[in-house]
Design a protein around this nucleic acid. Structure first.
Lengths: 347, 347
DNA sequence: TTGAAAGCGCTAACAC
DNA sequence: GTGTTAGCGCTTTCAA
């Protein structure tokens, strides 16, 4: 069942069928009606392969995430896919796990499918990947912290803002020994978060002891492990900030195991604001980086690039804000709380 | 840059290039080497649209899940996609949220892309969806509880086994008032779990009071809400079983809010065994339904169907077991524990 | 073993 | 406003 079959039955040419289906406005309504009748009767659906081939437009967008198993990403996939479908695009999804091999395979798949654009939501580490796509002048958006790159649009996340808010919040609570569990440092975004933390500490003249930051993996397991080290320190931190929420969940778990109560004995702040953070016990104070906004920004960036007649050689810069979400995983450190009580009693 | 360009530069015909790329063994190694050289030099990648068009095989599989935002599904997507890519398939992913409109759109997209098979991991409620695909003789796998259907392979989950284990476990702990929070009852799979629960209760002569089961939504929020109702009952249940882990997380949250301690005051059992269940506090006792196995089963079912020369009119039946994973969210009910202590003391 | 050529289903130029 | 037709990039007969 193809366009010719429809044409024959509706007694028009294939060109008219094509125009009708593509809603070209100049088609005589009488003919159009005849065409639609037959289309509906036969349950005809145009073949996207043929369309793509002749039009030179695949209507497919590549979406690369690092770990679909981390709750941060499904949200992004969901939103991105929704908007894509609304705009008649399909998406080619890859979860690379930061594995260069899978990344390379992903690039091959995307090129073979002639994707019209690629959104790289892997938060760093894909330089080599870009080259092949760039050579083919495929529009790209990337979440990045480096300098602007030619031909690539950039969503610049303002890590500093949210992280500063968090550190200030902790400082206001009178925390001094604040630890940081970073993500894998080969990820530029993880490095950027760590730097933002150090900056914020510095701004407030708080000591950023080297023993008080450890490298994590952005997974629960990594959080458990890192917390184990941090909490066995002779002089324990009174607060821990994490490079993502999964890590924070790991810290919660480990603290519980050690009989350390959050927030009474230890304050904890995450990063991402994944949906579940609101529901763990205690509800996690965290820094929001909106998944929906990120996905929307990425899609629109791609769409904008696709709609230009003359491709922008410089790529466009976009910005995404982060900010603190106060919940219940932070409190005054015990020592301080005791002092406060004493003071009160003394009066 | 196309196959003709390669042919010209390698001084062979396009047919030979095609054969080389598709690794047809009869190609003269000399020629093949020449072809590969040019292919690599130019960075040529065959156009899948053209391939699909001429071969009549899209090498795309449809994968429909209900809610990618529920951690149960990303795991499935991950595994399914991995195997698919290994077998040179691409996947067309849809998360329907059980919305009939999106479901219909998904069907259209899949047909337009001429998917070679469809895996329906929505756990029920898609009857109408099937018709259109079935008419086109597209192989399907579905996770279902109904009678076998023609042309559709079926992964039959043995809910009864795991749920019986769970109820027995609770009974052994001396729980009598066991509540059940189901999923949306329009989902056959949710209904099946509820039925399995009632059966298991009946087997053990435990009373299944009507007030002790409420309908949930398979979300955290639904769990919170349902727990609210159950825990404000004049005669509270001592244990709650949930139709999925997300619901159980909601119960945990609500219990905490009400100052009800798990497992001391309330035992809790989930269903699915999503990754995070192991890390919540307390670690959740739950019934495992392996996501990896489910995905693997589904893909293999599709592949098997695609490789038959004569399509199987009846579809094949597959089976997936469920079983209890003991963790720390269950204990003796307080009353019983007290009694036990007294007995001990009396001796 | 290789090449010439037909044709997959559709769109878009062009002619009418 | 509509029809005719070339051709998108590839695979696959068929003949040599």
């Amino acid at each position: 069942m193809d366009i010719r079959e429809i044409a024959k039955r509706a007694k028009v040419s294939t060109a008219t069928v094509s125009r009708t289906i593509n809603r070209v406005p100049t088609v005589d309504p009488k003919l159009a009606k005849r065409v639609w009748r037959v289309v509906d009767e036969l349950g005809y659906f145009p073949n996207t392969q043929a369309r793509a081939l002749v039009s030179g437009r695949s209507r497919i967008l590549g979406l690369v995430v690092s770990e679909i198993t981390n709750p941060f990403f499904p949200e992004i996939v969901q939103v991105f896919e929704n908007i894509a479908v609304q705009n008649n695009y399909e998406i080619l999804l890859t979860s690379t796990g930061h594995d260069p091999v899978r990344m390379e395979i992903a690039v091959r798949r995307m090129i073979e499918h002639r994707v019209e654009g690629v959104a790289l939501m892997t938060f760093g580490m894909e330089e080599s990947l870009l080259e092949n796509l760039k050579r083919r002048k495929i529009p790209m958006v990337i979440v990045d912290v480096g300098p602007p790159r030619p031909l690539v649009s950039n969503i610049r996340v303002d890590y500093q803002h949210g992280i500063r808010q968090a550190v200030q919040h902790l400082a206001a609570l009178r925390h001094h020994r604040i630890a940081f569990i970073s993500g894998p440092l080969r990820l530029p975004s993880a490095r950027a978060r760590l730097d933002a933390f150090k900056n914020a500490m510095h701004e407030l003249d708080l000591p950023a002891h080297d023993e008080l930051w450890v490298e994590g993996t952005h997974t629960i397991e990594g959080g458990v492990e890192a917390a184990g080290r941090l909490l066995s320190l002779p002089s324990r931190p009174t607060a821990i900030m994490c490079s993502n929420d999964m890590t924070a969940l790991g810290v919660m778990r480990k603290s519980h195991e050690l009989g350390i109560h959050i927030p009474h004995d230890l304050s904890l702040i995450g990063f991402d604001n994944i949906h579940i953070s609101e529901f763990v016990l205690p509800p996690l104070t965290t820094i929001e980086m909106s998944q929906a906004e990120l996905a929307t920004l990425a899609f629109n960036a791609l769409l904008a690039e696709l709609q230009r007649k003359t491709p922008n050689p410089n790529g466009t810069e976009y910005a995404l804000e982060t900010h603190l979400i106060l919940r219940e995983s932070t409190a005054r450190p015990k020592q301080e709380a005791d002092n406060a009580k004493k003071k009160k009693a003394a009066r």
